[in-house]
Amino acid sequence: MESKHVHVRRRDESFAQRSVTKIWEEVASAENPYLTENCRCHGYDLFELVEKRGFADVLYLLFQGELPSAEKSRLFEALMIALINPGPRHPATRAAMCAGVGKTETAQILPVALTVLGGNHLGGAEVEEAMRFLRKESKGDPLRAAMELPASPAREGDWHPVPGFGCRFGGVDPLPRKILQALLKQPGAGRCMHWAWNFSEGLKPRDMGILSTGLAAAVFADLGFQPRVGPGLFQLLNAPGLLAHGAEMANKPLTAMPFIKDEDYVIER
């Protein structure tokens, strides 16, 4: 049997001697250097942030490196409240409920649900693509962009011709539309939010509109977050509702959830 010599090429890379971050500084304890005495987030003392700032401000600081203005802070907090629960119709919430009633370990309920929430359908992956879409298209005419989209096919399900916009259950989802309309009254509302509103209004005659992912994307973009951060932020802001629904079902019997009949399963070929 003939053996073949495989040439192994050494990578010409020099690895860092230690990990470095600009985000977080830990002040070591005088008694034990492996323990932390105090922390600074982008130079801001943690205890001062605890005393003087809200969660939305510090979350913004973590990613942006600076504290938000009063207008951005209020807008971010309003979005956090609006997205706190995706609702029991959302696939991620259903996953949390099924995990809870199925007696999944409590610590795993949220990770199970967040895995679903990270997907392309009404999830974090769609938020990232919607942010890229808005950042690119918001320089143009939203009504013209809406008119150039193909009409929604005759169906009862969901259809998203562009990330963050489309139909749910064959129609316009009213809740994200109402939330965006309310958030547009905030002084911190910017170009992407206004463009998203006009674009969604142009889609209404075709039974389409803005989705929760498009709503989050528009606000994230106006707040200055990068698209790659969008999926995780979306998961984070929706996480409380997912956990609440999963925990609610954890002490209930398996029969508390419906069991789908065989005839209700549809396999598309």
Score class of each variant (00 low, 15 high):
residue 214 G to K: 03
residue 255 T to E: 11
residue 126 E to D: 11
residue 113 A to N: 01
residue 19 S to W: 10
residue 170 G to D: 04
residue 43 G to Y: 08
residue 170 G to V: 04
residue 209 G to H: 03
residue 37 E to N: 12
residue 119 G to Y: 01
residue 239 A to E: 00
residue 99 A to F: 03
residue 179 I to V: 05
residue 104 T to D: 03
residue 37 E to G: 10
residue 92 A to I: 02
residue 174 P to V: 06
residue 25 E to K: 14
residue 204 K to H: 07
residue 259 F to T: 10
residue 77 E to D: 12
residue 57 D to I: 10
residue 211 L to V: 02
residue 33 P to N: 12
residue 263 E to A: 12
residue 60 Y to T: 08
residue 21 T to Y: 11
residue 10 R to S: 06
residue 48 E to N: 09
residue 103 K to H: 14
residue 113 A to S: 04
residue 168 R to T: 01
residue 84 I to P: 02
residue 253 P to S: 06
residue 82 A to V: 03
residue 198 N to T: 14
residue 22 K to D: 15
residue 104 T to A: 04
residue 156 E to Q: 13
residue 131 M to P: 00
residue 28 A to R: 13
residue 201 E to S: 07
residue 20 V to F: 14
residue 85 N to C: 09
residue 29 S to L: 15
residue 67 L to D: 04
residue 218 A to V: 14
residue 118 G to H: 07
residue 83 L to A: 02
residue 96 A to R: 07
residue 63 F to D: 10
residue 65 G to C: 09
residue 144 R to E: 14
residue 217 A to N: 01
residue 214 G to V: 06
residue 208 M to S: 06
residue 166 G to A: 07
residue 184 L to G: 08
residue 159 W to K: 01
residue 237 L to H: 00
residue 258 P to E: 15
residue 82 A to K: 02
residue 231 P to I: 05
residue 233 L to Q: 07
residue 160 H to C: 08
residue 22 K to E: 13
residue 223 L to F: 08
residue 216 A to R: 00
residue 15 F to R: 15
residue 243 L to F: 05
residue 46 L to S: 10
residue 240 P to Q: 15
residue 15 F to S: 14
residue 251 N to F: 12
residue 59 L to P: 03
residue 191 R to G: 02
residue 33 P to D: 13
residue 53 R to C: 10
residue 121 H to D: 06
residue 67 L to C: 05
residue 128 E to D: 13
residue 99 A to V: 03
residue 38 N to W: 13
residue 103 K to A: 13
residue 171 G to E: 07
residue 2 E to D: 11
residue 236 L to N: 05
residue 117 L to D: 00
residue 214 G to T: 05
residue 61 L to K: 01
residue 261 K to E: 13
residue 179 I to D: 00
residue 218 A to K: 15
residue 233 L to P: 04
residue 171 G to A: 10
residue 11 R to N: 12
residue 26 E to V: 13
residue 45 D to I: 07
residue 70 A to I: 03
residue 55 F to R: 10
residue 43 G to M: 05
residue 254 L to H: 08
residue 4 K to Y: 13
residue 137 E to F: 01
residue 111 P to V: 03
residue 149 L to N: 01
residue 69 S to T: 09
residue 264 D to Y: 14
residue 118 G to R: 07
residue 40 R to Q: 06
residue 82 A to Y: 03
residue 212 S to F: 09
residue 104 T to N: 04
residue 164 G to A: 09
